[in-house]
Design a binder for these strands. Structure first.
Lengths: 339, 339
DNA sequence: AAAAATAATGTAAGCGCTTACATTGTGCTT
DNA sequence: AAGCACAATGTAAGCGCTTACATTATTTTT
């Protein structure tokens, strides 16, 4: 029903008795206009309730000052904190953020990339590195800068700011091995098109190898993301013939689900079984026992990514292609020594 | 640096040896074009890596099929689930969602409203009812349908889908009074420009009044949103001369913070003090003791809001201006009888 | 087989804005 | 007071698309 004629630049111009060019300048370069006309134009704008038509502006000026971000999910807090920091930094530089989510689905992500590009995003923030060559080529052809986050991948020809998922998980696993655990289970997000999940599991395997623990003592259960999925996975994993003494979860949400299920089944943490997470979401310190996990520098990652992106889209040069951030182990109550 | 000439409709047309109109029709009304030309056009599109320029399209066609939503925060899960359902329903009807966040700040919300409108949002989803007349007038003048959610306000001349915050909290408070509590404290989000928080506190007061409990036995502590803020508030509230036997928190996040702090101080829940929340986020059933709270029908609210909005922007009529959803009490471990 | 109806395509105007360039106005200098 | 520099404003083209209308090709009807 939006068929009522909205005020346009021309309406404002007529009302203020100036040309459209002057109105446009008032909006974009106020100091090129004399104070008196500026006042006149400004009041015409408020009287008419005028808002510039973004589409028209982009079409004419060919710059949007918009950055797009596509995150796998908005359903939980994982990406929220980083995104918030990202947004704040963008805003500081005069950019607007457009957010979309992919539901962890590659084809939806591609669709969203196209959508954001067609909406004029000057640059894009993406999570992880796993995606088709086709889409990377598309973005390159369009000359749209991309920054990957949540991964540190100097091996790729892409800008990235993140941490080494493999190394981080390896560090945690080492700690676990130190505590005497040999019988280890993993609840991971689907690794198929999720390089972060894949790298994390890789880290576990690598630690086991270094400690000369056979891989067959490692049960891996893949599931999709969510509390309930974590709980469900726990049920399955706990039933394996040699019950694990520790369950490494690919992230805190899965861990929280596993913990809930353990409680429900009367299995004590960490006395009967240890559980660990990854990400250090707020919930990790709220659940009880508090969750041992890997702390990820969410805010720093978001902020750094924003800065790189701003530099890229404004044509400034960026020193490093890949920035590596450090993760830290958060040893809390949910992890204990093996009995 | 986005200065490379991108392929346009005209380029595609030339390559496929048809007119621009035909290309446009291929994209928008494929069945008006013969199969052979359609194939030719489509391959030209892929070869060129063409993506339509959204701005130009909007400018020419005057419809965006885009709905905007402004939520107070993305930092935690409160609005996430509802938003997800909202988005799914919109997508089903062929609409795209644009999300922005206001950080619970009225002036930022206004800014975001303007931004979304100028970007061509056909309709808007807003949270709560509290905002200036000016902005409501602006939207009305622009003929942009608005749906409010998280509130049920048949008293306003706005579409809304939500629940009665006052009533819901009153119900919970009644339950608490039944359990013998008289000494009640409240940790609420700032009520200043948050009608939901305000209504919830109102519900508490109303229940107390009905039970003939004097209002001065009610300590209210206002704080901003967050786990840490909840914890901090707990410290303060616990120190009042007559220690409350129950703390009603305005939402689950504040409650989670309060619980964390209680544990830290060795105060047992619910033996020493009861704590309740509101919203029934996932964390409510994960913390231990599990949190007594008010369940909010997040997904239904999101879906209903989307349907109304789609009807409104497509000019169909909508039966009811306000839809009232029911909340339910979730009595869990964190609430016990007064000793 | 010609006429009529219909399908497929083309032509060109115009959406609301920015901006290069042209014009006019103002205050200095001499 | 004429001449000049510079500030303020205006003129008009064009950004990439959609769509009303015009034209041409194809099918159906008689």
């Amino acid at each position: 029903m939006k068929n009522q004629a909205l005020p346009t630049l021309a309406d404002v111009a007529k009302r203020a008795k100036v040309s459209t060019a002057t109105v446009s300048r008032c909006l974009n370069f106020p100091d090129q206009v004399s104070a008196s006309t500026r006042d006149r134009v400004m009041s015409a704008i408020t009287e008419l309730g005028y808002t510039p038509n973004f589409g028209a502006r982009v079409l004419a000026a060919k710059r949007t000052n918009t950055i797009g971000a596509i995150i796998p999910t908005m359903e939980n807090a994982i990406f929220a904190r980083g995104l918030q920091a990202f947004q704040e930094e963008l805003k500081y530089h005069g950019f607007t953020l457009l957010v979309a989510s992919s539901s962890y689905r590659e084809e939806i992500e591609e669709e969203q990339i196209h959508k954001l590009v067609s909406r004029g995003a000057d640059g894009l923030l993406l999570i992880g590195a796993h995606r088709s060559d086709k889409i990377y080529k598309f973005l390159e052809q369009r000359n749209i800068p991309v920054v990957l986050s949540w991964v540190f991948r100097p091996d790729l020809n892409q800008y990235s700011v993140g941490f080494d998922n493999c190394e981080a998980m390896k560090e945690l696993t080492n700690k676990i091995i130190d505590l005497g655990h040999k019988n280890i289970a993993v609840i991971s997000a689907s690794m198929h098109n999720n390089d972060r999940a894949y790298q994390r599991v890789l880290g576990i395997k690598s630690a086991l190898k270094d400690a000369n623990i056979e891989e067959q003592s490692l049960t891996i259960y893949e599931t999709s993301y969510g509390i309930d999925e974590g709980a469900e996975a726990f049920k399955k994993v706990i039933k394996t013939k040699t019950r694990p003494t520790v369950i490494l979860c690919g992230n805190d949400v899965l861990a929280a689900g596993a913990m809930r299920q353990a409680k429900k089944m009367g299995i004590r943490i960490p006395q009967d079984i240890s559980i660990t997470g990854f990400d250090d979401l707020q919930l990790a310190s709220i659940v009880s026992p508090s969750l041992t996990t890997v702390h990820v520098p969410h805010r720093k990652m978001g902020k750094d990514a924003a800065q790189i992106l701003v530099n890229l889209v404004t044509g400034r040069k960026v020193k490093e292609k890949s920035i590596k951030l450090e993760t830290t182990l958060c040893i809390r109550e949910s992890l204990g020594p093996v009995k």
